[in-house]
């Protein structure tokens, strides 16, 4: 279920294949150009994701009755958790 969620790994794999093909140089120039353009686009996408994405956090609980509850939360919400800490620092 979580596979391909962000596609980062797939993009990296595709990029690797492209780099290898380009360095192999056994393909027509036209195909190399297409590969090159796609490769640069992948580098751009991956870098953009790494630089600009914000960590998403979700709280998951399943009650004894089997009720699944998913709640998006902000890191600050955890920080200001009402003082009661159930473990020492």
């Amino acid at each position: 279920m979580t596979e391909n969620e962000n596609g980062f790994e797939e993009n990296l794999k595709e990029l690797e294949a492209i780099v290898n093909r380009l360095e192999g140089a056994d393909q027509p120039l036209e195909e190399s150009l297409r590969d090159f353009e796609r490769g640069i686009e992948l580098v751009r996408q991956c870098s953009h994701a790494l630089n600009n994405m914000q960590l998403r956090i979700e709280q998951l609980t399943v009650s004894e009755e089997g009720e699944v509850l998913r709640t998006p939360i902000e890191p600050q919400e955890l920080n200001t958790g009402g003082g009661e800490r159930d473990e020492p620092e």
């Binding site: 969620e5 962000n6 980062f8 994701a49 790494l50 994405m53 914000q54 960590l55 998403r56 956090i57 979700e58 709280q59 998951l60 939360i73 890191p75 955890l78 920080n79 958790g81 009402g82 009661e84 800490r85 159930d86 473990e87 620092e89």
Partner: peptide, 24 residues
């Protein structure tokens, strides 16, 4: 959810690999 551990984990993952999603 109120311990130091979760804060540490969120901070490190957020810094290193913000692409990921955390399910706490």
């Amino acid at each position: 959810p109120r311990g130091a551990a979760v804060q540490d984990i969120l901070a490190v993952v957020g810094e290193r690999y913000p692409i990921a999603r955390i399910v706490l």
